[in-house]
């Protein structure tokens, strides 16, 4: 059963449409990346899956259920978590409180999942009582992902998870995303570091001017001459 299916999606933020009939799908356990030039509508497409965009035409299906009209707080309950690109932590709250807020809608014991996240991100365990606003960009990115994972989602949406990070952190972040994916969580991410992203993903979508341009497996896209010329710096 397809995890996420976006079909013929047209919409934007209330003004002119940004997306024009875009299709996209993510299979269970798959890692999918959206690349494209600035202003192509990459982030918008991902936000559309999370109820953050005004959809005029088309549909968003999650496990074949229509979630097109749902609000973000309802979509979270379906099993999708979203990590925004910026301002993705609660700065005046501690690491532990941030994780707790990620699990707000859970009423069961969240301790085991929190321990799993601390094992996965040992750095967060060290800093569990530190206020998020005082942490480095890389640490905040970990916390943001940790918060999103607290719900044990089936699909994780990542908006440019490596933006603004130093090269070492970029590699680490991709490595972590791959590990999260190996645990069976579907991943849909938008990335500027197209080369590295395509290297780790299963499939990729190239978006230009709010329309599908190419979609293929990661290796095929990496080998595609047009794509290489457009986004991969030749």
């Amino acid at each position: 059963m397809t995890l996420l299916a976006i079909e013929g999606l047209t919409g934007g933020y209330g003004g002119a449409d940004i997306l024009h009939g875009v299709d996209l799908r993510v299979e269970p356990g798959e890692m999918v990346v959206i690349i494209g030039p600035n202003g192509a509508g990459k982030s918008t497409l991902m936000k559309a899956a999370f109820g953050l965009v005004k959809i005029r035409e088309g549909a968003v299906l999650f496990e074949r259920r229509d979630i097109t009209a749902l609000r973000p707080d309802q979509i979270v309950r379906q099993g999708i978590s979203y990590v925004p690109q910026e301002q993705n932590v609660f700065p005046s709250m501690t690491v532990e409180e941030n994780l707790e807020m990620g699990a707000f809608i859970r009423n069961d014991d969240i301790r085991p999942q929190m321990d799993r996240i601390y094992t996965f991100f040992p750095r967060l365990a060290e800093r569990r009582d530190q206020v998020a606003g005082s942490m480095s960009g890389g640490e905040r990115q970990m916390l943001a992902m940790g918060r999103a994972l607290m719900l044990e989602p089936k699909l994780l949406l990542l908006d440019e998870p490596t933006a603004g990070l130093s090269p070492i952190f970029i590699d680490q972040t991709f490595e972590r995303i791959r590990k999260i994916n190996e645990a069976g969580i579907g991943i849909l991410m938008v990335e500027q570091n197209a080369k590295q992203a395509l290297a780790v993903c299963d499939r990729g979508y190239v978006l230009t001017m709010g329309r599908n341009r190419v979609d293929d497996t990661g290796p095929n896209l990496l080998a595609n001459k047009d794509v290489a010329e457009m986004f991969l710096g030749g």
């Binding site: 707080d73 301002q87 609660f90 409180e97 807020m101 707000f104």
Partner: peptide, 24 residues
């Protein structure tokens, strides 16, 4: 309390609180 922390979270970052499923 969870509700008290949710209040602080909303005051901190409204958009993130919404996408975390905190019932605003």
């Amino acid at each position: 309390t969870k509700m008290g922390k949710a209040m602080r979270a909303m005051s901190d970052n409204m958009d993130l609180a919404l996408v975390s499923g905190i019932p605003s």
